[in-house]
Simulated scan of single mutants.
Amino acid sequence: MSVFVSCGEASGDRYLGDLAFRLSRRGFRLWGMGGPRCREAGVETRWDMGELQVMGFTEALGALGRLIRLRDRIALEVARANPSCVVLTDSPDFHLPLARRIRREGYRGPMVSLVPPAVWAWRSGRVRHLRELFDLCLPLFPFEHRFLQDHRCRSAFVGHPLLDRISQAELDPSCRTVAFMPGSRGGEVRRHLPPFARAAELLKGEGYRPVFSVASSLGEDVARWMGDLLGPLGVEVSREDGVSLLARSVGAVMASGTVSLEAMLVGRPGVVAYRTSWLSMALARLLVRSPHCALPNILLGRELYPELLQGAVRGDLLGRRILGVLRQVEDPEGLRGWLSAFREGRTLLGRAGALDLWEEVVSEMASR
């Protein structure tokens, strides 16, 4: 039995790869689009997820023709192969049209939305497409699960999958290592690295040791560019797993994304930054209902991690903000506040067992 799977970015590759590893052990043949984690899990990646890595609304418009042709090729291939199940992960601006196209090509098998679009936060009209196209949604957050059920989508949830693999690490306020996580996509890194590098210089002047993470999803050209820019500053660049880097750090400067949730679960304070095109940000501010950008802040309903967006993503401001956070950690009362928020956030994410649930429900659907 074969299962078609697809993801388009680093976090989706990690979630789908974890599921794919378990499905492979059950004897399913997996093929489709993915990244390094999916390949390690045994997925035959006929398309690389790098083809989807465009950043923001305006960047996606420039790649629209290419993405439509890619969608049509994949849909035809799925319809011809008629797999036992289809699992589409995150990247909704590509995967929702792909799901509709697959259905139009005649595929009638079960279809799963793993990490469905954030319809609870913006463009809620997409919930109708989830209800019509997918047999099951597997969301990451409890409020997503409730929203989907309230809108008559089939949804299953026990907790966030990061709870299965990330434990809180002891925080040593005397540690001087600070993790810098500029993003998992080339466009993100190119926008964030110059101000992040300036902030790192400021931290070095205060006696801290900045270490920059190179995400596994980044190409060698981006990694070389990072080294060329950071090398003359005497700043370390690391290809180690991001969670491991967070665990050996006292805090982090992060691009907005899954990494902020990982930082919360590891138990590391920090600052979240994000810069995109002005039009992309204007559209986001018009359409997004949440007042927060960082996932822990959305989860908690308040700002735990300071957020710097667009023009505020400057090296001097980033440096001052992260220094302020690190000073909080050095104060026992400030440290207790962060640790209390970390515990609250972990509780709000549900309980461990998401991967067990995903494995069971997808295996059952693919075996019908």
Score class of each variant (00 low, 15 high):
Ser113Trp: 12
Phe134Trp: 05
Trp120Leu: 02
Leu130Lys: 03
Pro116Ile: 10
Ser91Thr: 15
Arg104Gln: 13
Leu96Ser: 07
Pro110Asp: 08
Gly106Phe: 01
Phe143Pro: 00
Ala118Tyr: 00
Glu132Trp: 10
Phe141Arg: 03
Glu132Ile: 03
Glu77Arg: 15
Leu88Gly: 02
Leu96Arg: 09
Phe143Gln: 11
Val86Glu: 08
Arg100Met: 02
Ala121Tyr: 05
Trp122Ser: 04
Ala118Arg: 12
Arg104His: 05
Asp90His: 10
Pro110Glu: 05
Gly125Arg: 14
Gly125Met: 02
Glu132Ser: 12
His95Tyr: 05
Arg108Ser: 13
Cys85Tyr: 07
Glu77Ser: 15
Leu130Gly: 05
Arg126Ile: 03
Ile102Lys: 06
Arg101Gly: 00
Thr89His: 04
Pro139Gly: 13
Pro83Met: 09
Val78Phe: 06
Phe94Ala: 01
Arg80Lys: 15
Arg108Cys: 07
Arg103Trp: 06
Ser91Cys: 14
Phe134Glu: 10
Arg100Asn: 05
Val78Gly: 02
Arg131Cys: 09
Glu144His: 11
Gly106Ser: 03
Leu96Gln: 11
Val78Tyr: 01
Asp135Ala: 13
Gly106His: 06
Val119His: 00
Ala81His: 12
Leu133Cys: 07
Val86Ile: 15
Pro97Ile: 09
Val115Ser: 05
Arg131Gly: 07
Pro139Thr: 14
Leu133Gly: 05
Arg128Tyr: 08
Arg80Thr: 14
Arg80His: 14
Phe141Gln: 07
Val115Lys: 01
Ala79Arg: 07
Ala118Asp: 13
Val87Glu: 12
Asn82His: 10
Ala79Cys: 07
Glu132Lys: 09
Gly109Phe: 03
Arg101Phe: 04
Ser84Glu: 15
Glu132Asn: 07
Cys137Phe: 04
Leu98Met: 05
Phe143Gly: 02
Ala121Ile: 07
Leu138Ile: 14
Leu114Thr: 03
Glu144Trp: 07
Pro92Tyr: 12
Val119Thr: 06
Val115Asp: 07
Ser84Gly: 14
Ala99Leu: 02
Glu144Asn: 08
Val127Cys: 11
Leu96Thr: 09
Ser113Gly: 08
Asn82Val: 04
Cys137Gly: 14
Val87Met: 09
Pro110Thr: 05
Asp135Phe: 05
Pro110Ile: 02
Leu136Asn: 06
Thr89Arg: 03
Asp93Lys: 00
Ala121Val: 00
Arg100Ile: 01
Ser91Leu: 13
Ser124Arg: 06
Arg128Met: 08
Glu144Lys: 11
Arg123Val: 06
Val119Trp: 06
Val119Arg: 01
Trp122Thr: 01
Cys137Tyr: 00
Glu77Cys: 05
Leu98Tyr: 12
Phe134Gly: 00
His145Glu: 15
Leu138Gln: 11
Pro142Lys: 12
Val112Gly: 00
Pro117Ile: 11
Glu144Asp: 13
Arg123Trp: 11
Asp93Leu: 06
Glu105Ser: 02
Phe94Ile: 03
Leu133Asn: 04
His129Ala: 01
Arg128Ser: 13
Pro117Met: 12
Pro83Asn: 14
Asp93His: 04
Pro110Arg: 14
Ser91Ala: 15
Leu138Cys: 13
Ala99Gln: 01
Pro92Asp: 06
Val86Pro: 09
